[in-house]
Amino acid sequence: MPSKVYFTNMRATPELNLLQKLEKLMKSAGIGEIDFKKQFTAIKIHLGEPGNIAYLRPNFSKVVADVIKELGGKPFLTDSNTLYVGRRKDALEHLDAAYENGYNPFCTGCQVIIADGLKGTDEALILVEGGEYVKEAKIGRAIADADIIISLSHFKGHELTGFGGAVKNLGMGSGSRAGKMEMHSEGKPSISEEKCIGCGRCARNCAQRAISIKAGKASIDHEKCVGCGRCISACPFDAVMPDWDGSNDVLNKKMAEYAKAVIFGKPNFHICLVIDVSPFCDCHVENDAAVTPDIGFFASFDPVALDQACADAVMKAPAISGTYLTDQLHENGADPDHFHAMHPTTKWQVMLEHAEKLGMGTRKYELIEV
């Protein structure tokens, strides 16, 4: 049976603005069927790397939070620390970035909690039923502790996964730093001798005693290393680097398995906003020009059907001239798949096929316009 995906376009009137349309969409899609009464509700969102302005405006998250509160729930916005070097790699910098981007209780009507704690090590281990690559997902504890999961995603291109939507927001976005390393890599971290000053913080945070200081530089014994990622978060000089050696297809499958760990056994509901469709992730400090016109808002109880519907809508949309998409089409030739045209080494279908295989949902959908 196809899943129901609800859609509303970007047209607005004085009687019905975009924020009101988002509220109407959520209620039409059936969010009220969830029993929110006194339930801690995680609104999983990407808070945006400062410098990037394609991330979702906090106004949208306030609509979601207000609906949840109206239904008796206790909402909070949440994201996990990043693995890459940037301004969201620990909770203090992450909160500073969130506030700078407008994500504070005065704008959103609820608190922001960094799910995996101060250094990205506060995680819960969750079994992945049917997981082929991940047996135990390392999920940010605040997300793992939530009673209900709501994903609010900015749908856009992504250089490693083709696009970023609900499944990526849930999977990659909910993993602790060690979880993110597990998804991205089959290997162990390494040391940049150029950046390392031999301070020993990484060694002091290694429970496996796999790190030693030799000739004023840190060294990792990969025989002892278990790939937990704690040394990455411990280093204040970004000298400990993950080994980005996993294939994009495997990354997509691991991400789906992590997403299943997040929502399995819990009420969940998903929203994607297909606006400001930038070619790259909101983790970039820049967002580049939108590659298609804004399309609208989508919502569903099925994150797989939701991502498929959003992908289909983007691929049907015309490419905007003078963007990264048209640059790639001019260089490489026509391609009906906008995401593959922008990022030829990716195959986003792998993620949805694997999520469907895991029982997270179906790629078949019925689109219902609100």
Rank of each mutant, 00 (worst) to 15 (best):
S190E: 12
S190Y: 14
S190T: 10
S190R: 12
S190D: 14
I191T: 08
I191D: 02
S192I: 09
E193M: 05
E194G: 08
K195D: 12
K195Y: 05
K195A: 13
K195E: 10
K195F: 06
C196Y: 08
I197Q: 07
G198N: 08
C199W: 03
G200D: 05
G200M: 02
R201P: 00
R201W: 12
R201G: 01
A203Q: 13
A203M: 13
A203L: 03
A203W: 04
A203S: 10
R204D: 09
R204H: 10
R204G: 14
N205C: 08
N205H: 13
C206N: 01
C206E: 05
A207K: 14
A207Y: 04
A207S: 09
R209H: 06
R209I: 00
A210R: 05
I211Y: 01
I211W: 06
I211Q: 00
S212D: 13
I213L: 02
I213G: 05
K214C: 09
G216D: 04
G216N: 01
G216S: 07
S219R: 15
S219I: 10
I220A: 02
H222A: 08
H222R: 15
E223K: 09
E223L: 14
E223S: 06
K224V: 00
V226F: 03
G227H: 01
G227R: 03
G227N: 03
C228T: 07
C228W: 00
I232E: 11
A234H: 06
C235G: 10
P236T: 02
P236V: 04
F237C: 05
F237S: 07
F237D: 15
F237V: 12
A239C: 08
A239S: 13
A239P: 05
V240Q: 12
M241W: 09
M241E: 14
M241V: 07
D245G: 15
D245L: 10
G246D: 05
S247R: 08
S247G: 05
D249G: 08
D249R: 12
V250M: 13
L251P: 02
L251I: 15
N252F: 00
N252C: 15
N252E: 10
M255C: 14
A256E: 12
A256F: 04
A256C: 14
E257Y: 01
Y258M: 06
K260Y: 02
K260G: 06
A261D: 13
A261T: 12
V262Q: 00
V262M: 02
V262E: 12
I263V: 15
F264N: 14
G265D: 06
N268M: 01
N268C: 15
F269T: 09
H270W: 01
I271F: 07
I271C: 03
C272N: 15
C272D: 15
L273F: 07
L273C: 11
V274W: 04
D276I: 00
D276E: 15
V277G: 01
V277K: 07
S278E: 07
S278H: 05
S278P: 04
P279R: 06
P279T: 03
C283E: 09
C283K: 04
H284P: 00
H284A: 10
H284E: 10
V285Y: 07
E286S: 11
D288R: 15
D288L: 14
A289N: 12
A289E: 14
A290H: 04
V291N: 12
V291Y: 02
P293K: 09
P293S: 10
P293R: 11
D294G: 11
I295S: 07
I295Q: 10
G296H: 13
F297S: 14
F297E: 08
F297W: 11
F298I: 07
F298P: 13
A299I: 09
A299D: 10
